[in-house]
Simulated scan of single mutants.
Amino acid sequence: MIAPRRFLPSISSLLALEAVERLGTATAAAEELSLTHSAVSRQLRVLEEQIGVRLFIRSGKSLRLTPAGMAYARSVRDLLNDLARASLKVRASGSRASLNLAVLPSFGMYWLSPRLRGFRQAHPDILVNQSTRIRPFDFEREDFDAAIHFGAQDWRGVQYLPLLKERVIAVCAPGFADEIPMPPQVLTGQPLLHLESRPGAWEDWFKAHGHDADRLRGMLFDQFTNMAEAAVSGAGVALLPEFLARREFRRGRLVPASSGYVDVEGTYYLVWPTNGPASAALSSFLVWLSGAGDLAAGVGELRADADQGQFDPRRNV
Score class of each variant (00 low, 15 high):
R117L: 13
V271S: 02
P162V: 10
R156S: 12
Y268A: 13
L216P: 08
V128G: 12
L88D: 09
Q308G: 07
D212S: 14
V20F: 10
Q43R: 10
R167D: 11
D212G: 09
A147M: 05
L220Q: 10
G175Y: 10
F221L: 06
N226H: 14
V53E: 15
F139E: 06
L254R: 03
L295W: 07
M182D: 00
V186A: 15
A84P: 05
R253S: 11
D294R: 08
V20R: 03
A71I: 07
R58P: 00
H123F: 14
A173R: 14
M182P: 00
Q43P: 03
G151R: 06
Y72A: 12
F221T: 09
E203L: 01
G52H: 10
V264D: 05
D145W: 00
S13E: 10
N100S: 14
A281F: 12
E140I: 07
V264Y: 03
S62R: 04
R156N: 08
V46N: 01
P183Y: 05
A173H: 15
L187Q: 04
S10A: 11
G157R: 09
E49V: 05
E301H: 13
E32H: 01
P313D: 01
G108P: 01
R247L: 03
R314T: 06
S290H: 15
A306R: 15
W288P: 01
F311T: 06
S283I: 00
A292V: 04
I148F: 14
E140H: 11
L44V: 01
R42Y: 12
L88R: 13
M182R: 00
R198W: 11
D294V: 06
R253N: 11
R215T: 00
Y268H: 15
I126R: 06
P67E: 04
V90M: 10
S106L: 03
P114W: 06
R198P: 02
T66S: 06
R217L: 09
N129K: 07
R141L: 15
P277M: 02
L216G: 09
C172R: 07
A245R: 05
S75N: 09
E142L: 13
P4D: 02
G252P: 11
R91N: 09
P273R: 00
A304M: 13
S98C: 12
V20E: 05
E248A: 08
D204G: 09
F7I: 02
E31G: 04
N226D: 15
H149A: 02
N81P: 07
S279G: 15
A235Q: 09
L286T: 09
D312T: 08
